[in-house]
């Protein structure tokens, strides 16, 4: 086994995802600690253009095949597995995203490597990697010991700054032969579907009133709408509200929704699971109202209120009118 750190580069439509740079920044630190190299694995149809953005890595390992132009759990696993077999890295860092979830856990079974998911931090302690995961919606943290020769860490987006991972310039690019099994997939990628333009673009709003499960019922949504109206902002939400079809998808903040950075973010009845925090933690001012005083949202908010939102919101709307 080597002491190298391998970061799996996530890309969509030939654009590298932000989370990749977060992983690269952290990977740089870890490679210094292990004394190994920082490797970036690029699985795509043509690696050169993506490699140009990966200057922070010591080496880019590419697997190129037309089949890899778009993500496919089966072909990507075949390609990644060949990289891991060849390079035998100390740690594989992968994003805990829609693509990364499919890839990380299947790589774990395929190569019989241990995996720690929901990771928000990784540090080397002697020969072991200590991985801090945010579990139970962020209410409990756990420290896992990854002391095998090699292991996989699936990291929550937004855990590390992206800046340290961004550096233009092409490192040494090594293209590995595409494994023959690459096109042997039972899942077939057909197309990418862009979201329909909705009535409002929450990424462009200065003020957002966000509702979560604590709003309790669709009938209570007007409370939030009136507050947003009084503020000249818009209503957005956490995932359960959209899964329940109370609001359209274009209002969802977080992992599978949108990333927002408003001046003011008022979180009503939102617990603050890591998937939501990822989408709003960069708001300039966060006010959270939630009766659960242990809700993780209070770790990220500037101001917190544990009184009932059904008492506070109407009074607040009245004062802001």
């Amino acid at each position: 086994m080597s002491q190298d750190i391998l970061v799996v580069v996530e890309h969509l439509d030939n654009v590298i995802s932000d989370v990749t740079f977060e992983l690269l920044g952290k990977g740089r630190e870890l490679a210094t600690a292990t004394g190994g190299k920082l490797l970036a694995a690029v699985l795509t149809s043509s690696a050169q253009s993506l490699a140009e953005k990966l200057g922070v890595a010591d080496q880019v390992i590419g697997v190129e095949d037309p089949q890899l132009q778009h993500f496919n759990p089966e072909s990507y696993l075949t390609a990644l597995s060949s990289v891991v077999e060849k390079k035998a890295p100390r740690l594989v860092l992968i994003a805990n995203t829609s693509m990364g979830m499919d890839l990380g856990a299947s790589l774990s079974v395929e190569r019989n490597l241990p995996l720690v998911a929901y990771a928000a931090d990784v540090e080397m302690e002697g020969d072991a990697a200590i991985v801090t995961s945010h579990l139970y919606g962020g209410k409990i943290y756990s420290e896992s010991v990854l002391d095998a020769d090699s292991g996989i860490v699936s990291i929550l987006a937004g855990s590390f700054p992206a800046e340290p991972g961004k550096k233009d310039g092409t490192p040494e690019l090594e293209i590995l032969a595409a494994p023959p099994a690459l096109s042997d997939t039972r899942l077939r990628f057909k197309s990418l579907i862009q979201p329909e333009a909705g009535d409002v673009d929450i990424t462009q709003e200065d003020i957002l009133v966000a509702v979560g499960r604590g709003i309790q019922s669709e009938d209570n949504l007007p409370l939030a709408e009136e507050l947003a109206k009084a503020l000249g902002g818009a209503v957005c939400s956490s995932r359960p509200i959209v899964d329940n079809k109370w609001l359209e998808k274009n209002r969802q903040v977080g992992k599978s929704g949108l990333k927002v950075k408003p001046r003011v973010y008022i979180a009503l009845g939102i617990s603050g699971a890591p998937e939501h925090i990822e989408g709003m933690k960069d708001a300039e001012l966060i006010v959270a109202i939630n009766t659960d005083e242990t809700a993780p949202i209070f770790e990220h908010a500037h101001y917190g209120v544990t009184e009932d939102l059904f008492d506070i919101v109407p009074a607040l709307t009245e004062k802001l009118k």
Partner: peptide, 26 residues
């Protein structure tokens, strides 16, 4: 393939400034 050496509740208090009082005051 891994073990948990520690599980804990994250420390509170570094986060939000909590606002107290009745609904009107808050």
């Amino acid at each position: 393939g891994t073990s948990v050496r520690r599980m804990y509740t994250p420390t509170r208090g570094e986060g939000a400034e909590m606002l107290e009082g009745d609904a009107e005051e808050i």
